[in-house]
């Protein structure tokens, strides 16, 4: 019996909006990695002394570095939204025998996010 097997296009993920969003979500990891590199450059600059730190600040103010970081920020935010949004589906949390509703799990994640972000900001800006 001969059957027809639909070929898979190389860029199959352009076929549906949801797939595009998925690939963008996965690509956010590249920007997470970029952030690690950026962070380590900062750490290196700070530990090398004031002049080195100033050079880092100048470099990071260049338009193309800012541009990369703005794009990275958007991707990281996409990561945050999708990660927190999917979290309740991966974990079934029970408190005293009752399943915690999904919205509460999501809300807890955002709350933790806000608290941690505030703590970091306070530590840096103090």
């Amino acid at each position: 019996m001969s059957v027809y097997q639909r070929p898979v296009h190389l860029l199959w993920w352009l076929e549906r909006r949801a797939y595009v969003l998925f690939v963008l979500r996965e690509l956010s990891s590249v920007f997470v990695a970029w952030f690690v590199v950026f962070l380590l450059l900062l750490v290196n600059a700070v530990s090398d002394g004031t002049a080195s730190y100033q050079r880092f600040l100048d470099w990071s103010g260049q338009w193309w570095v800012v541009a990369i970081n703005v794009v990275a920020m958007l991707f990281v935010l996409l990561h945050v939204v999708t990660w927190f949004g999917l979290a309740p589906r991966a974990m079934a949390i029970k408190v005293r025998g009752r399943r915690v509703p999904a919205q509460q799990i999501v809300a807890a994640h955002y709350l933790a996010w806000l608290v941690l972000s505030a703590a970091v900001a306070w530590l840096v800006l103090r």
């Binding site: 549906r16 949801a18 797939y19 998925f22 996965e26 999917l86 589906r89």
Partner: peptide
């Protein structure tokens, strides 16, 4: 599985 999530959608 890479959690595309379309199965559930």
């Amino acid at each position: 599985c890479t959690f595309v999530g379309e199965c559930s959608a």
